[in-house]
Design a protein around this nucleic acid. Structure first.
Lengths: 402, 402
DNA sequence: ACGAATAAGTCAAGCAATTTGACTTAATAA
DNA sequence: TTATTAAGTCAAATTGCTTGACTTATTCGT
């Protein structure tokens, strides 16, 4: 008798799932459109007025939405707009990076309530976790002061760090934080904070931030190329963040460009790490951004050279992303403030001709996204909120997390 | 007062949607696993025994599933396995291509019941539609003979033709069927047959076929590179076919490879069109495959050269696809039978190192898929069945087709 | 051979959540 | 002033999953 093969099947659904979905759809609609009346919501979601009323009632009871002043807009009874309550939920974002780690606390609509930074030892995650737990405890106490039920409203901790995860790769001379990537970080942070912890790579976090608050707001198909010490792409496909079969989708920094006999990963030419190496800036230097900005302003030859080479490969990367993903837009984000990123975007233009329609576009083919060094932390913080409140297939299903 | 901006929102869900989803989940489980008892289905889907029993009852009433012989497998009451009924639904697939068009009729489990071919004028879709309607009517009558309620069980017509759609591109010397791509084909076929008609590109159709019956059976993340007169990739992402923001995702044939000063789309070097052009085979020749096979068997120098160049670009294409999509497997399919495609896959190996895990894989990184010239037609026919019976987010929602 | 254990499946009531259709309220337009 | 329009409520109906007890059929252990 043959060995019992596991049965593979997708999860079933039940009423609780549909209700959860409908709640999320309403929250999503309020986030994308601002305040809406129940009648508006009913029309926009396809639900009945009655169903929307019931859902709004529970959401209001949960402190997630609140009504505004009556609005008279023509004939008929005036409508009561509802909007998201910023203090309805909070979320903690944690970016772990090579030279600095950042924590941030945001509310349901993305306001930043507290932030802090620390350094963690890149090769000693065990000690690093202690530092991070202190850091989190600090901001948690700071923002909770004066907010009565703040603790109960924390959706979780979103962690972002450089990927890829679960992969042994030959060291390619960039600093990969291998020790952290094989460490049970999620479990340790969950145990140390009592909160739900989720992990994603920095590019995915950036895409989450762009979708919730930035250049991809309201779009369902977007590729967000994140230029940091490494390069990755966060993928919004069909309205959801796509992470692939093993959690490593979008690692566009590892795509090979250059001559056929000397193929080079994109991030060897276009990452901030490669620029810093070229101009001799130490990424651990707290004044790194000012020094870089001075070089850019001075028209430094090496910076211009780097922009030229980086833009050449990025132009092909954008073309490849457009061709393979057919997104509504490609966003270039990066953790470097100032004039560099706009200059890089300008240097990438004109884009290579692609399938992407040129006429009648609502958004440009390529646009600059966030260049705030805190963008990844913001996106990390957005992740628990997204998980808790955004419509998604898995939210409907009985077995979660598939 | 400002102009009324349309409200954007996702669709809500209701009981009918959950039930529809659960039915699909059960059909999907039976397709992937073969016959299963209701208790097995309950465990695999997370539904209760009772819910599964009710669903099976309606499915059996609809003639979609049927019970088999009791099975004794240890202690406890014997179980009653259920399996899909092949004749529960039929579907028509229509491949429109440059030199030949193919129709096929398949049943719910993928058996081929009828097929036929015709030629349509590549630049005169108006006349072509008449030919196609005749062709469809012919196979429809042929397969329906002797099957009482065949007509009522036809899920629809799936049409596959070369993409991309809705795009004006500068002619790149390959034959692009532009006239057909801007023609209201779906509407005309729907009106002429009274059936639901869906359109996809040939690579997507191939991926659908591979997922339902071939090398991607049961996988939720796969990239299917289809090497035909052009090259495209069908994307199975998160268990669903992904088509992008404008319906043109996966056009990997248009990704540029080669030297930086002479970037060439993949399909200029690796498509069957490029091979035929090189060795002087006319794709309209009915003996095209035999002639090609003879050249391959004879070890023709030009064929070997083509394989070498095509494999070099395809190796990078596979690497790019692995890096961006992080699939469980990459499948290489093509409309050319015989030894060519296996030789091409062999020439692509060894693959470039990528993020894709090498140890503990259930499926290889790259594998050969269907090389039947009918593969695209089969996939086209699989599409209406997929739409009607596969679990998908949109199936749960009130407003369909989003 | 017999009872205990185990597993599949049914029955009937319970329950959650949307839907339906009539009704109420409040505004503008004619 | 009245008709019309639109927002929102009320209460009953309906759909479809869940619950828990029960039945049936088989194997295992003694």
């Amino acid at each position: 008798m043959s060995e019992q093969r596991p049965i593979r099947a997708k999860s079933g659904a039940n009423h609780e799932g549909t209700s959860a979905h409908n709640r999320r759809v309403i929250i999503d609609a309020l986030r994308v459109n601002g305040a809406l009346s129940r009648a508006d919501l009913a029309r926009a979601t396809g639900l009945t007025k009655q169903a929307v009323s019931n859902l709004i009632e529970t959401l209001e009871g949960d402190g997630l939405v609140a009504s505004e002043e009556l609005v008279r807009k023509g004939r008929g009874q005036p409508s009561t707009p509802y909007r998201l309550v910023a203090d309805g939920a909070y979320s903690i974002g944690l970016q772990i990076d090579r030279h600095i780690s950042r924590v941030i606390v945001v509310d349901l609509v993305g306001n930043i309530l507290a932030r802090a930074t620390a350094k963690v030892p890149p090769r000693a995650p065990e000690e690093g976790v202690a530092v991070l737990l202190d850091l989190v405890a600090g901001v948690r106490a700071a923002f909770a002061a004066g907010r009565p039920d703040a603790e109960a409203r924390i959706a979780g901790i979103g962690v972002a760090m450089p990927g890829p995860f679960g992969v042994e790769i030959a060291d390619d001379s960039l600093w990969l934080m291998q020790a952290w990537q094989s460490f049970p970080l999620v479990e340790r942070l969950a145990a140390g904070t009592g909160l739900a912890v989720s992990l994603q790579n920095d590019a995915a976090a950036c895409a989450t931030a762009e979708r919730m608050l930035g250049a991809a707001h309201g779009l369902d198909h977007a590729v967000c190329i994140y230029v940091g010490y490494g390069i990755g792409a966060g993928l919004i496909l069909g309205g959801e963040l796509y992470s692939g079969g093993h959690g490593n989708a979008g690692e566009i920094g590892m795509v090979l460009f250059g001559e056929p006999d000397e193929l080079v990963p994109l991030e060897h030419r276009a990452s901030i790490a490669s620029l810093y190496a070229l101009v001799g800036i130490d990424p651990a230097d707290p004044g790194q951004f000012d020094r870089l900005e001075a070089l850019v302003a001075a028209g430094d030859r090496r910076v211009a050279d780097w922009i030229g080479r980086a833009a050449r490969d990025l132009r092909r990367a954008v073309h490849t992303a457009e061709t393979l993903f057919d997104p509504q837009t490609v966003i270039l984000s990066g953790g470097v403030p100032g004039a560099l990123m706009p200059a890089l975007v300008a240097a990438i233009e004109p884009l290579l001709p692609s399938l992407s329609p040129t006429a009648g576009r609502a958004v440009p083919r390529l646009r600059l996204g966030m260049t705030d060094p805190w963008a990844v932390a913001i996106g990390a913080a957005a992740d628990p909120i997204r998980r808790a409140f955004d419509p998604s297939f898995s939210a409907i299903l009985k077995r979660q997390g598939e």
